[in-house]
């Protein structure tokens, strides 16, 4: 499983990376802009990400906007929705509007911070990324 972690916060990045380290390589992006670039490069190399964990509120470009662009890229590449990267939104507990927005933008799951290892793995299991 190839993962892209998009987080502006160091602690969150560290946690996600640690949680996911036994499931395959994970790359890091610190804001939405970097994330969009990372996804584009991966698509060009024909090695797309299986999972994208993306924070919502970030400097430069926020998660929602980044997600929209990522989906647009995947569509442009001609990928079927089933082959799109699974997107898990990670967000602090008190971001209601964003949560709804995330759903509208076709993310696959969301996790409230603080991030729970067991909850994260459970979501990944639901998405059939891990067993």
């Amino acid at each position: 499983m190839k993962t892209l972690i998009v987080e502006d916060d160091f602690t969150s990045r560290l946690l996600l990376q640690e949680f996911l380290k036994s499931y395959g390589p994970s790359h890091i992006a610190v804001n939405g802009k970097e994330a969009v670039i990372a996804v584009r490069l991966a698509l060009e190399a024909n090695e797309p990400y299986d999972l994208i964990c993306i924070d919502i509120m970030m400097p430069e470009m926020d998660g929602q906007l980044a997600l929209k662009e990522i989906r647009a890229q995947e569509e442009a590449k001609g990928l079927k929705p089933a082959d799109w990267a699974k997107v898990v939104m990670t967000t602090a507990l008190d971001d209601p509007k964003n949560v709804i927005g995330a759903y509208h933008n076709l993310c696959d799951a969301y996790l409230a911070k603080p991030i729970h290892k067991s909850k994260l793995l459970e979501e990944l299991r639901k998405l059939r990324l891990i067993k």
Partner: peptide, 12 residues
């Protein structure tokens, strides 16, 4: 502040 909030939440 939002970022601090998230980080703080993660470490309890």
């Amino acid at each position: 502040a939002h970022t601090i909030k998230g980080a703080a939440a993660n470490v309890g």
